[in-house]
């Protein structure tokens, strides 16, 4: 899943530096992820994983690192499966 997330970040995140240089826990906002970039990423994640992030999950923390995004996707997947 992290590979897909990295691909999406590279394609839609509009980050100034290559995603390959980031670790899973690096702060994406410090790496230059803007609110517009994060919306593009959220949209691509919803598309790629066939999920919809509920309103309460659309916050800064859930999209602050590759690990956090993975956690958020898994949470939504678990909720949608329940």
């Amino acid at each position: 899943m992290k590979t897909t997330i990295r691909d999406i970040l590279a394609k839609h995140g509009r980050l100034p530096a290559p995603v390959g240089g980031l670790s899973d826990d690096d702060d994406l906002h410090a790496a230059g992820l803007t609110s517009f970039g994060s919306v593009e990423v959220m949209m691509a994640l919803e598309e790629a994983f066939g999920i919809e992030f509920p309103d309460r999950m659309l916050n800064r923390r859930n999209f602050s690192s590759i690990s956090a995004i993975e956690q958020a996707v898994m949470t939504v997947q678990a909720e949608e499966a329940a």
Binding site: D55, R56, L58, N59, R60, R61, N62
Partner: peptide, 9 residues
């Protein structure tokens, strides 16, 4: 609630 404060909503 930092999550609520940084939420899009």
């Amino acid at each position: 609630d930092a999550d609520e404060l940084t939420s899009i909503g």
